[in-house]
Simulated assay, not measured.
Amino acid sequence: MAGLGEHITAMVRSHAAGDDAAFYAVALQVAAREAKSGHHVLASDIKKAVDLSRDRAPAGNVTKLVQPRGDLAELVEAAHPEVHLRELVAPAELVAEIKQVLAEQRQRKNLLNHGFAPAHRLLLEGPPGTGKTMTAAVLATELSLPMFTIRLDSLLSKFMGETASKLRLVFESVAQRRAVYLFDEFDALGADRSGNDVGEARRILNSFLVFLEEASPESLVLAATNHRAILDKALFRRFDAVLTYALPDARQAASVIRARLGSLATGTSMAKLGDHTGGLSHAELVKAAETAAKTVLMRGEAHVNRDDLITALTARRTASLG
């Protein structure tokens, strides 16, 4: 009965998490167990029930969005991103680090069988809008995993006094469901605190460090911060890798703009745009490109000219400085 009990536990967990694929997989394992025990009618009934349930799934919903349930629903936002590595504009060194993480995850079973854990705890640090959240989406897409975002500032403010227990729920999900878990706005938790601001914040941080240390290598746990300098130094040694992000240089800025404009950039000169793109993040460059594109389309034209871009970039720089 112990084996059946484990199956039932797994089914309850998958049902609570809204993971139909895992639920059906365990149900079929139970059917196989019953068939092996000679209970062929019961096994057949279970298989028919699974097939019927699958057939009744909404048409066209090939990949059902996994939505957390219960207490977890208050803590995380679920998504199934479709952002590939080729879409990320970043320095070659950073892209190589991301490729290494992907390679280790794809070979995780081989590594674990030899006593080595794949990189699965990553600290992403750099200015806002430089690709940290996009990297989480890339990892989820390339590994065909759901992505769960935990916004720590709202977690701390909404559940102060029970934050550590809520974090435990998240890390239990890390162990039970393979996914990419992004702890956004990590500064809210990881800031180096002193003086009177120790108490509860220190206990929460210590709990997070313990949970992170024990995090299952089946999932990826990412923490994103805009302010590395204020992070508690104890955090760094708990991560397998620290990925550093920076504002794009002139060449990368042109690539970001071209990618967003698509065919609207045909024939548009972006030479020597550095004076207008300097200081802007990837996200701000995308917004500027969108502004220029909408201006052109509303004029009834098919291509963005250089003056349109400069006007949009200048406005964006003024807004960011203001």
Score class of each variant (00 low, 15 high):
residue 296 V to Y: 07
residue 80 H to M: 09
residue 307 D to K: 12
residue 146 P to N: 00
residue 268 T to E: 04
residue 145 L to P: 06
residue 321 L to Y: 11
residue 169 L to H: 13
residue 231 L to C: 10
residue 138 V to C: 04
residue 137 A to K: 13
residue 103 A to S: 15
residue 72 L to E: 08
residue 93 E to P: 00
residue 260 R to G: 06
residue 309 L to Q: 05
residue 183 F to Y: 10
residue 128 P to S: 07
residue 288 A to K: 09
residue 172 E to P: 00
residue 185 E to D: 06
residue 231 L to S: 04
residue 35 A to Y: 06
residue 162 E to K: 13
residue 199 G to D: 10
residue 187 D to K: 03
residue 45 D to M: 03
residue 16 A to F: 07
residue 300 G to D: 12
residue 188 A to N: 08
residue 16 A to R: 15
residue 320 S to M: 12
residue 10 A to M: 10
residue 141 T to Y: 02
residue 179 A to W: 12
residue 97 E to M: 08
residue 252 Q to P: 01
residue 209 L to H: 12
residue 221 V to M: 03
residue 291 T to C: 04
residue 235 L to A: 02
residue 1 M to C: 01
residue 298 M to Y: 14
residue 315 A to I: 05
residue 315 A to C: 04
residue 171 F to G: 11
residue 99 K to T: 04
residue 41 V to W: 01
residue 141 T to F: 01
residue 314 T to K: 13
residue 306 R to G: 10
residue 163 T to S: 13
residue 216 S to N: 13
residue 206 N to D: 13
residue 166 K to E: 00
residue 258 R to A: 09
residue 41 V to C: 00
residue 129 G to S: 03
residue 226 N to M: 00
residue 26 V to K: 08
residue 267 G to A: 03
residue 229 A to Y: 14
residue 297 L to S: 02
residue 188 A to S: 15
residue 270 M to E: 05
residue 128 P to Y: 02
residue 63 T to A: 13
residue 194 S to L: 02
residue 40 H to S: 07
residue 9 T to P: 01
residue 108 R to W: 10
residue 35 A to V: 02
residue 119 A to Q: 15
residue 135 T to Q: 02
residue 116 F to G: 00
residue 82 E to Q: 09
residue 140 A to Q: 11
residue 164 A to M: 03
residue 308 D to T: 08
residue 26 V to H: 12
